[in-house]
Design a protein around this nucleic acid. Structure first.
Length: 547
RNA sequence: GCGCCCGUAGCUCAGCGGAUAGAGCAGGUGCCUUCUAAGCACUUGGUCGCAGGUUCGAUUCCUGCCGGGCGCGCCA
């Protein structure tokens, strides 16, 4: 019996009690059962009676008593107790509980997926760094979180496209090109220019492909450095992302919005809607009508649209491509954008709460100092992966709440010790995979069936209930856009498994024969392995068979 | 000044209104002739920043303070 099954059983018991006139209240459609921290409180607990007490106009414990008598009679329920202010503590029948192992193994890779976001088309944009340098550790956080978020939303039934937005024109790129040219000609890097080995590297590669380039007229040479430098830089970025296992469905260039006239169309549309005014030679959007703290320029006095204006057109483009939700992961350093972005959506006549979402993430620091692409001495995506592996990098960056600024101690990461929880979780999976191999070598097969009632040891029921929590972990993480919840869940599951491993021998030793309990435990172990593999998969981390 | 985030064990952090607030690391003591000891068991450690409010119940929600981070451009 899964937690969802139990919730439905409880709901039915409540409905029966109400039908019988035990108390009068609307039947709740969101009955919650949870796994209590204290196991003396049974396998599951529900606060439904506490919630119904007020509408019923009766003391909570009285409502609980009415539900208890109905619930006790239900299939798969061993005992129901009323505790504290009116909690209902439920103990499942052992065989009903053990059936969970079969449910999980049968579902396999599909176990944990749900339909909470079914039918939704979601466009998820993240990273979106311009090609003026390699991705560094702050970008990697959005790569790891964004990709995991996409996988989570897909596991919840949504159609998701991952999108990367960039601009290869503008001041940043000009500085990039000028820096390449300066390095190539031995001139000092201009003020606000880019520095670092990668600039020298890119400059060299451009020169290798264009011998004699430095002898050209500066204007012409810079243009070549710009065009080819961007191409090389972007190729490196994509290669780094591939290495990390992050694949984008769409790389969208801001230039296309200018070329297609989408920006002018959007300005026209906003003007027709009456949200635009002219002042100081520029065109403004009256975002203060929609809660922004000041109005924003969308077309500069020299006629060039602002970055923000392109964002307007970009949003429209995404919606016209059929996405119900436009989600953009941004760093906290962009949070000033949130107000005007929401105002912009409202100005376009849409409800930002329905179609627009910006999960904000706090920044990553190294040695307490803020990373900057211009600092020269930064930890890049590749350096991080070289130091601690793809799995550790992804896991470490996804296991903390986005609301928390992560302080990465570079020395700790380089140390590569077991202090990293990813090993703890992967090790549990490797142990389980090893167990399957050993069982096969001993000629032991878990068979098509087992006696679920045999899984009655405390460690076994702990493991069963942990495994049963997985789908809800996925669903809530997807709904809340908080992938770190899955990581924390996996750490907890791994701990529960390691304790089981320590206390419950699975395979026979010496001359012993395999017993029905052997088979039952093999089912439970396979169920655990499936959940660990699925959970790591959702985070984009491998589930190794050996370590 | 305004906005967002954070403040929980020595350290790093979990905890979408529930029961006695948890984990890892660090410190201490034990467990490998048997399925991976990258593991497990026991143990030390707390005014959940402070003060109010909301309610059957607040670490969680609201308000005000205190402390820290980030941002507030016709830059992106």
């Amino acid at each position: 019996m899964t937690p969802d099954d139990l919730a439905e059983t409880v709901r039915a018991a409540v409905a029966a009690a109400i039908d019988a006139g035990d108390f009068a209240a609307p039947v709740p459609d969101d009955v919650v059962v949870e796994h209590p921290k204290n196991r003396e409180h049974g396998d599951y607990a529900t606060n439904v009676a506490l919630r119904l007490a007020e509408p019923a106009g009766k003391p909570p414990r009285e409502v609980a008593a009415a539900i208890k008598s109905r619930l006790e009679a239900a299939a798969g329920i061993a005992a129901v107790d009323i505790a504290g202010p009116g909690f209902l503590n439920v103990t499942l029948a052992k065989d009903a509980f053990g059936e969970l192992a079969r449910t999980v193994v049968t579902a396999g890779t599909a176990y944990g997926s749900n339909t909470a976001l079914a039918g939704q088309r979601i466009n998820l944009e993240f990273i979106s760094a311009n090609p003026t340098g390699p991705l560094h550790i702050a970008h990697v956080r959005w790569a790891a979180v964004g990709d995991a978020m996409a996988r989570l939303m897909q596991a919840s039934g949504a159609y998701v496209e991952r999108e990367y937005y960039f601009n290869d024109a503008g001041a940043q790129i000009e500085r990039f090109a000028a820096s390449l040219y300066a390095v190539a000609t031995g001139a000092p890097v201009p003020e606000n220019g880019y520095q670092g080995h990668y600039i020298e590297d890119i400059a060299r590669r451009v020169i290798d492909a264009n011998p004699g380039l430095t002898g050209e007229v500066e204007e012409k040479a810079v243009e070549v450095f710009r065009r080819e430098g961007i191409e090389l830089m972007f190729a490196d970025i994509r290669a780094s992302l591939e290495r990390l296992g992050v694949h984008f469905d769409v790389y969208f260039n801001e230039r296309d919005l200018h070329a297609s006239g989408a920006i002018e169309d959007t300005v026209r549309r906003l003007r027709a809607a009456g949200h635009v005014f002219d002042a100081d030679g520029a065109i403004w959007l009256r975002t203060t009508d929609f809660g922004d703290d000041k109005d924003r320029v969308i077309v500069r006095s020299d006629g060039r649209p602002t970055y923000f204006c392109a964002d307007l057109a970009y949003y429209v483009d995404k919606r016209e491509r059929g996405f119900d939700k436009v989600v953009i992961i941004l760093g906290a350093d962009h949070h000033g954008y949130l107000g005007r972005m929401r105002a912009m959506v409202a100005g376009l006549g849409e409800d930002p709460d329905e179609h627009f979402e910006i999960p904000l993430g706090q920044l990553v620091t190294v040695h307490g100092s803020r990373l900057s692409k211009r600092a020269g001495n930064v930890v890049t995506l590749d350096e991080l992966v070289d130091a601690i592996s793809v799995d550790a990098a992804r896991y470490a960056l996804v296991r903390s709440s986005m609301d928390s600024a992560i302080d990465i101690d570079a020395d700790l990461w380089v140390r590569h010790t077991n202090e990293n929880p990813v090993f703890y979780v992967q090790y549990a999976h490797a142990r389980l995979a090893s167990l399957q191999r050993n069982a096969a070598e001993l000629g032991i097969d878990r068979g098509d069936d087992f006696d679920p009632g045999l899984l009655s040891d405390e460690r076994e029921t702990d493991l069963l209930s942990a495994v049963g929590e997985y789908p809800r972990s996925v669903a809530s993480a997807a709904e809340l856009r908080e992938p770190h919840r899955v990581a924390r869940y996996l750490e907890s599951l791994a701990g529960t498994y390691h304790r089981f491993y320590d206390a419950c021998r699975v395979l026979p030793q010496g001359d012993e024969e395999a017993t029905p309990l052997t088979a039952a435990r093999l089912w439970l172990c396979e169920a655990t392995r499936v959940v660990l593999a699925n959970g790591l998969g959702v985070l984009g981390v491998s589930a190794p068979d050996r370590m």
